[in-house]
Nucleic acid binder design. Sequence first.
DNA 1: AACCCCGTTTGGTGATACCGAACAAGATCT
DNA 2: AGATCTTGTTCGGTATCACCAAACGGGGTT
Lengths: 263, 263
Amino acid sequence: MTPNADNADKYRVKSLDHALDVVEALGHGGRDGLAVTEVATAVGMSKSSAYSILQTLLRRGFVASHGSGPTRRYRLGLSFAYLGDQVTSQTGLREVAMPYLEELTRVAGLTSRLAIFDEGYAVAIGRIDGPGTIRIAPFLGRRELPHATAIGKAMLATLGDDEVRAIIEPIGLLARGPNTIVDIDTLLRDLHRTAERGYAVDDEEDTAGVVCIGASVHDRTATCVGAISVTALKHEMRADAAAEIGALVRRYADSITTELGGR
Amino acid sequence: MTPNADNADKYRVKSLDHALDVVEALGHGGRDGLAVTEVATAVGMSKSSAYSILQTLLRRGFVASHGSGPTRRYRLGLSFAYLGDQVTSQTGLREVAMPYLEELTRVAGLTSRLAIFDEGYAVAIGRIDGPGTIRIAPFLGRRELPHATAIGKAMLATLGDDEVRAIIEPIGLLARGPNTIVDIDTLLRDLHRTAERGYAVDDEEDTAGVVCIGASVHDRTATCVGAISVTALKHEMRADAAAEIGALVRRYADSITTELGGR
DNA sequence: AACCCCGTTTGGTGATACCGAACAAGATCT
DNA sequence: AGATCTTGTTCGGTATCACCAAACGGGGTT
């Protein structure tokens, strides 16, 4: 028995893993949720197993359901809203930064975001939507590539070359947009320029047609604890406006840093 | 065997229930998280079981850990930030309402919130913090009593008396603050007045020293889909200011309703 | 009205979740 | 600095239970 024994199952609770599959499936399920059979096929398990898992999550408020009988559908419940808020609030950074983000969005007229580092990736923990009708980069909590985003490069630029290499090495320089930097030396040069001028620029490096400008935030020990950024469509931001916006973003980042007692 | 057979275990995945206990414990764990033993005692299970659950959640990004050896501590991971954002975004209401909330907070100088109905309770799904240093009612996703909050009463006031009774009956009129309405007839009178003037007032009914003013939001079928509110300390809001703020909140709620094509 | 589809229920069994106890490695105290 | 205590981590066995296949029943659709 135990034919291959990857050792990957050590301290793994299989049924919990299955339940997490269900949760993630529901997370991608969209507005009207998923039916039991859809969940079962999505995670590759039997209908009745999916049913039991859904019932358990339902009783605990982790999923909600509407409809009954053959029209019944399940989606994630409000418990996740509560826990997600707890997580993003646990970083005291968010409480301090959000008022500045609101002002930045109002002044610049652009969607702004707040992100932290998580195992080498940039993860947004706060967002203020701009007046535009289209929603750009709307996700919180999703890992984003550090070398392809303004928010990631702003944070990388605060580190030494060897630290950057150590972070990038396991992730790799994947091409995401038309201008993604896929060469480590080019990236390091870009980061040096970023450090000099005080703000990072993502010019269609992550998504075609989208430009971002970001700047880092520091705590009282002068270490980088996060970054803020604004996002715009390419045609909204002309080349000469970038420097102006960059200075603005940098100014707000510095204000947050100051309130944290940092730099 | 099966000595009492409550029938409560039907379609219950016990190990998943245990894992949810762990998640909730971590949710209340605060900034620096919980140690394995703390988790085990909090949920009432063995150390090794808690360890396996934590390891499984860790590998999936649902918890994060820092430290190692005897100083290792666990807290909820950023997956919850992502899923929580998904949940609150699934209600299209949030995307429409948040820009108005931002403006309302700026104009009124007070923390404002957006809430929906969830099985008779009011649940906040969006928030813009005001300039004050103290954080009032900061939670998202937590169920709040409908009869004791401005946001809840604003929604109740859009219903008929019998519907209100049907909602209140299973919940009860629990006393929360100094002025909580604990009598159903008094509540109904308050709701009638709320409907007439267009905004609800919570004058220390939920929390001592805190007053809230809320107004309901409607969709194109004229049914109430949620409510917004502002929160202030009692000494910040004089009696004559309430009517002014009430009209303001009501105006912003109407703007959201209009953008939804409603009323 | 008949068909079909899908949510719900049931029962059995092989896998496994849980526990108790031992091991190891920092932290704390003297 | 050394001893001791506390706490995270590992391991093995067994009663439990998570999973599946198949059957049931009720809406929705044609």
